[in-house]
Structures are given as structure tokens and as C-alpha cells.
């Protein structure tokens, strides 16, 4: 990521190692290298790099992952505050 890091200790991604079936799908779909495989199971290698896109959760057939997915977009948040709705990308 060329040294570009965002806020630490805030993201909502959770991994239940006991539920992981070792399919590696999360390591494939994550665009920020959040996961790595260790002893046949996924583990969080770089949790703070997560952007909460939800790709891993959607593709985890074992249901071992969870996240509050969303778009990291301030304009969408403001839109949500003004209209009293969830932040949605205005696109």
C-alpha cells in the first residue's frame, strides 16, 4: 500500500478460527492482504488494513467471518446524517 495506512483499531472484521474450513477464499478476495493461512486455517495478519468491503464475509461458505460492511466515504456519511438514513454511496 506504499505506506498509506488509515485509522488503527477501529474496523469491525471478526474471524472465528474454529469455524474456518481452510478454503482460502478470504485470502483470495481480500484486496488489502488482511488474511493469511496458518496451519490450514485463516488468521488476521493485518486487521487494520481492512476497508470493510465485505468480500471475505460474502465468500466465506463456512460463515467464519463477520463485518459491518460499508463504504469509507465521508460524503456518504454526511448524506446519511442529513437524510437520517444509513450511509450510502450516492452513486
Amino acid at each position: 500500500m506504499g505506506g498509506l495506512r488509515y485509522i488503527d483499531d477501529v474496523v469491525t472484521v471478526q474471524l472465528d478460527p474454529d469455524a474456518c474450513n481452510g478454503c482460502r477464499m478470504c485470502t483470495t478476495v481480500c484486496p488489502h492482504g488482511v488474511f493469511e493461512m496458518k496451519d490450514g486455517r485463516a488468521r488476521l495478519a493485518d486487521r487494520d488494513a481492512c476497508i470493510e468491503c465485505g468480500a471475505c464475509v460474502r465468500n466465506c461458505a463456512a460463515g467464519a467471518l463477520s463485518v459491518d460492511p460499508g463504504v469509507g466515504c465521508a460524503a456518504a456519511v454526511i448524506q446519511g446524517w442529513l437524510t437520517g438514513t444509513e450511509p450510502t454511496c450516492g452513486c
Binding site: 459491518d68 465521508a74 454511496c89
Partner: peptide
């Protein structure tokens, strides 16, 4: 933040 590729919603809310 919306045009960047490395921001999370939780992080954006934190800073806002």
C-alpha cells in the same frame, strides 16, 4: 476518503 481505496467506514466515522 470516498475516492481513496484504503479507507473503512468505521475509520471515516471515527475521524468525522
Amino acid at each position: 476518503t470516498g475516492a481513496s481505496t484504503y479507507t473503512s467506514l468505521s475509520g471515516v466515522l471515527w475521524e468525522m
